[in-house]
Design a protein around this nucleic acid. Sequence first.
DNA 1: TAGCGGTGTGC
DNA 2: GCACACC
DNA 3: GCTA
Length: 574
Amino acid sequence: MNTIPSQPLAKNVMHTNESRLDLSSIPPVSILSAHFEDDEIDDIKTTLRRCGATLTTDVSDAKLFIGKVGTTRRAEFELRSRKFKVEAAPEPSHDSRPDSNEEPPNKKRKLSSSGSSRAPIVMDNDSGSTIEGGQIAPPSVPGYRSPSTASPPNENLSTSYSKEPSIHDDLVWVLKVDWLDACLAAGHLVALGEHVVYRGRVIERPPPRLVHKSIKAVFAEVGKSASGADPVIQQQSNPSIIERAKADPVVADLSQNSHQRQRAAQLQSRRFEGSSFASGNRNPTFTSQKAHLLQQTTSEYEGEDSDIPPPPNWVKERIQYSCQRFTPADGPNEDFLSQVEQIQMARILTDDETGTRAYSTIIASIAAYPFKLSHPREIAQLPGCDEKAVSLFVEWKNTGRIQAVEDYESDEDMKILHMFFGIWGVGAKTARRYYYNNFWRELDDIVEHGWDELDRVQQIGVKYYDDFLQKIPRAEVEQIAGIIRRYAVRLRDNRITVTIVGGYRRGKSESGDVDVIISHPDLGATAGLVKDLVELLEDDLWITHRLTLSLKNTQRGQTTLPFCTNKTSAATKI
DNA sequence: TAGCGGTGTGC
DNA sequence: GCACACC
DNA sequence: GCTA
């Protein structure tokens, strides 16, 4: 929020006169982060703190919600998603007074700060004023207490605590940010007035957050109460493979190499059912823009065919399958590709199966094209690319950006869905259910409110969320492959070969997983190898969690597919 | 305008 | 058997 | 979204 003037940091209430605005008397505030940039949120939080406002560390304490919220509906959604049960509160009978300059009564009761470094704020506790209408807040909302960890959460609920029967209800307000701006401009609290988007009576508040914990810490607790047979829990204290790999004499001295270039792993299709997120086409402004640009460029590009390099053979021959053509790990069109990949991710997260598949072919085709794309006709000739691919390229070429991508990237819902989608075992459908049905917005919500409805792999996925997102440097890929070979050799003999394939083989500097083909000149020697190998690696604790194991290919004998040797679809992790 | 994979898991 | 997720 |  650039509109907020910078003010000297008031570390202590004694110095709040440095910044004129004193918000120490308003009830606990929570920011509704939707539609804000990250730095905007930081600014607002900073401002609130400087002005002495109580920023909740636990939404369950909040009474005031500040956000970019336009409608009552959205406000209700935001509250519901935070596990508030609310109903619209009727307008107060006494009508609003015009803006008032009077300072709020304040500073009677000291509150302990909770977690933040902010100095204690003070708050009027015995005035019956409300935050309504023209009245200036401090609503001494009855029953409001410090979000101190010492006090049992339910005491925050007004009804039982209130000495004021007249103000019986637990009310919450959703305010537009511009209220804060107005206060800053005025240098004092201004009437809520038109800044109130929603006023609700709380029927039920969410359960309080426990002390802030890391996911793993919370997990450990949840684990205790869960069934003791849960493999996640049983193995949680195992040393990581990395630690042990480093300690292993065989692999210890391999050098670590780390670059950063990496392309998103090839995205695979997911099941489809309905979508609510806009595809680029749906946006009317974009549609017209697209038409315009297309027209513009068609003529603009006319007659430049000589600039187009002769198409590679796979283009001429309309080779459809990406496995039939060479694709460099780092081609000349990565910048455009990353944009298209974003669009595909939007399709994935909206659970648009066909769209996802379509973008897969487009992406794969462009990724295999060995020249820097310059003319739309080049794209049009690629297999799997047509009108849409061309229009995206034209838009990108002409404006340097793609509206559909901008829309996706600034969409708060998409960010949350993407975060859930990052959990191993959670696809678009489940991510959407977490958000739209359960109103969860962060991993902690899952851990605290939904742990029991996760299946086994999803629990592993949440527990190791960050670890699974971590890329593996080439040297480490080699170490892991080395360990696999050592054990395979132990099971058979040293004619075993372990070939690293996948992203590593394509030269990527970091991998998301380790793909290997384990083989042996004697075909029979590979029979049942994968199963034995996995079990042995499990015994020796190199494998700590088995996510899935697919044996179907190995089971149909060693002879089935003519020119495919044995391969492991080794789907075991960590 | 239909059709766009194969396999394992969990309910 | 069906829904879902992974590669 | 694209192909057959």
